[in-house]
Design a binder for these strands. Structure first.
Ligand SMILES: [Zn+2]
Ligand SMILES: [Zn+2]
Ligand SMILES: [Zn+2]
Ligand SMILES: [Zn+2]
Lengths: 170, 170
DNA sequence: AATAGAAATGTAATAAGGTAACACGCGTTG
DNA sequence: CAACGCGTGTTACCTTATTACATTTCTATT
């Protein structure tokens, strides 16, 4: 066994950028989502659950209309609010994130309380990684504090090349 | 004289958040823009110049269609590409920024080479401040480097309350 | 000055993203 | 059984952005 010692403590190369047992990702997140909703009091109805599953199918962000198409072909409503409401619910409950650079959504891979990650978006393969961004946010908070500005929400998104595509380009 | 010693070295409270001689902002940026374009080889045509002036009228971000309305009433074209092309030109030449959170654009207040700022957006009064964000970007670069991801562009935008609106709320 | 090519501007048409307003069904709860 | 909240669905509409193409304006070269 190569490295069974660390379950996923710092996750130096995000799963999104490496081959992995993705089925495990999906079931883990779905389980955590159920737990989290039990605490918060939200209901994971069929549309909502299916929306989360669709987002979870790949480590990338999906547009609302792409999600909607999927939902529609699976027998749910085919009007925009169907997708937007489900996505909004997931975002509000910390189960998904909205990517500003892409006008798109992605499942949250770490549905813990009040985490506020940074995102790395590969422009070549669309892979999306979600990183704990405490130091970045701290630096930003410092900047803002000097000006008297009070930050409520911050968007930290980077576009570039993931390790796989860097290698491929070389 | 209270503090005439520092012209604007660190700009601890951004002009956007304080009363100031805004006419001076406008003329300074327009001058700098002309200089910068002379070096880069871009042409500040009438539409482009007017677009920049419109963005410069206030320290806030404007939607493309808001800009377009202004241009149209002033005798320029009234189709979306007119505004989008002018805005794109300004962004490409470092004279304006695109705000992802707002789907909007703002004049760059410091049109120096390769600066990559963070933005503070007041949700109450729409004021927009542009801050040098080197430390934040460094922190983000560190995170990304650990994963092997190569950052090409990063979006750092915060929404909250500016000092003025904080006071007003209290 | 003539003129060919590049750059800039304009239009029409359409795609993509997002929201408001309303009707229905269903499971509470008094 | 109301009365209610909530979730889901629909229609209609609004905002944002791009594609395609025609026309004009600059610029460079002869
Ligand atoms: Zn996975
Ligand atoms: Zn990639
Ligand atoms: Zn700037
Ligand atoms: Zn404010």
């Amino acid at each position: 066994m190569p490295e069974p010692l660390e379950p996923e403590p710092l996750e130096s190369v995000p799963a999104a950028f490496a081959p992995h047992d993705h089925r495990a990702c999906e079931t883990r997140v779905l389980d955590e989502a159920a737990d989290r909703l039990a605490e918060l009091g939200g209901r994971l109805t069929p549309v909502r659950r299916r929306t989360l599953e669709i987002l979870l199918e790949s480590h990338r962000a999906m547009g609302a209309y792409e999600v909607l198409d999927r939902l529609a072909t699976e027998g749910f409503g085919r009007q925009p609010p169907v997708a937007y409401r489900a996505l909004e619910f997931l975002v509000e409950h910390g189960l998904a994130h909205r990517l500003q650079r892409l006008n798109a959504f992605a499942a949250c891979l770490h549905p813990g309380r009040d985490h506020a990650p940074a995102f790395l978006i590969c422009r070549a393969c669309d892979a999306l990684a979600e990183l704990p961004a405490a130091p970045v946010r701290a630096a930003l908070a410092d900047l803002a504090a000097d000006t008297g500005f009070i930050i409520e929400r911050a968007t930290i998104e980077a576009v570039g090349l993931c390790p796989v595509c860097v290698k491929a380009a070389a």
